[in-house]
């Protein structure tokens, strides 16, 4: 009978404590939803104000005094070339560093210093990297305010992040694979090259792509080394330059702008109608950043199952 059932229901102070606990769930949930919904709201607000400016012309036009005619073309070329330079100059060094730390380094104080140093470099503000690039690449090596100087600066900036992610990936490879290879007479490099690296590649790629997505959005460091806002040519080598090393090199030494700098310039433009351009620029930038993040997530998921 229902009336005879044992009822485990607290009263008094205990009931109060339980009630407080139950209510607290919704408070914490509220805070979480607030954080998550900000992302949704920002996306909505951007699309609301920028979508109308988004068109093929917007992607292929040069900057202009007129908001409706201004476009993102040089900035897109600049971002693309800058990322290529950054990737090719940073990835080999980052992976090499990670391999050295995990597989070859003597386990002594030097290694501890290298590791602490990397952790700190990852936390150095990007504008400091900008100053470094300005002094070393732009001035000391006389690269001027070129794509190469920008790419190298970003490379220095993302190397620490990429190293830390690659280390993580190398550590995830079961030691038995390496030990097996060594037991069969492989040299240390052979074991790394044929057994460790192939299994660490997905993790390394994930970390690298995330680091690149950070570099794509970098603004302050590039303003420091002199990325200009308004450029009326396509930065970087043209299609014809691919056959001509001299022209290719000259292309890499051209001055540049990137999408985030263009957004920055449009945001601060005193004419309000340029804010719509900034929104449209943000849509383009975020599409790129999200595509990179999605790619990283896909690679991670795909190789986790195997």
């Amino acid at each position: 009978m229902a009336s005879e059932q044992l009822r485990l229901r607290a009263g008094g102070a205990v009931a109060r404590r339980q009630l407080v606990s139950r209510v607290s769930r919704y408070l914490f949930l509220g805070a979480t939803v607030l954080g998550v919904s900000i992302l949704g709201f920002l996306a909505y607000d951007t699309i609301d104000s920028g979508a109308s400016r988004l068109s093929l012309d917007f992607l292929t036009n040069y900057p202009s005094r007129f908001a409706e005619k201004a476009g993102l073309r040089p900035a897109m070329y600049g971002t693309l070339w800058l990322m290529l330079i950054t990737v090719f100059s940073s990835i080999p060094i980052a992976i090499g560093t990670a391999i050295w730390i995990e597989e070859f380094a003597p386990r002594n104080r030097l290694l501890t210093i290298v590791k602490i140093n990397l952790a700190n470099l990852a936390g150095v503000p990007s504008i400091i990297y900008g100053i470094l690039g300005l002094t070393i690449f732009v001035r000391f090596y006389g690269m001027d305010r070129s794509l190469l100087a920008g790419g190298f600066t970003l490379a220095l900036m993302i190397i620490p992040m990429t190293v830390i992610a690659s280390q993580e990936a190398i550590r995830q490879v079961p030691p038995s694979l390496r030990d097996g290879a060594l037991a069969l007479g492989a040299t240390r490099w052979q074991a790394v090259r044929h057994n460790v690296l192939p299994n660490a590649i997905p993790g390394i790629m994930t970390g690298t792509i995330l680091a690149i997505s950070r570099a794509v959005g970098e603004t302050a460091a590039l303003i420091m080394i002199g990325g200009a806002a308004f450029i009326h040519f396509d930065p970087g080598p043209n299609l014809a330059d691919f056959a001509d090393p001299g022209g290719f090199w000259a292309g890499l030494n051209e001055s540049f702008t990137v999408i985030p700098i263009q957004i920055y310039a449009w945001t601060l433009d005193s004419r309000r109608e340029f804010q719509a351009n900034a929104s449209a620029g943000i849509i383009v930038l975020m599409t790129g950043v999200m595509a990179l993040n999605l790619l990283a997530a896909l690679i991670r998921e795909r190789f986790r199952r195997n």
Partner: peptide, 24 residues
């Protein structure tokens, strides 16, 4: 579901946040 969405906020370039600070 929630954690990756929240972490996506960390991937937003800061110039985008700057735009929102001034406009919105």
């Amino acid at each position: 579901v929630l954690k990756p969405i929240l972490e996506a906020l960390a991937g937003v370039p800061t110039v985008v946040y700057a735009y929102f600070a001034l406009t919105f």
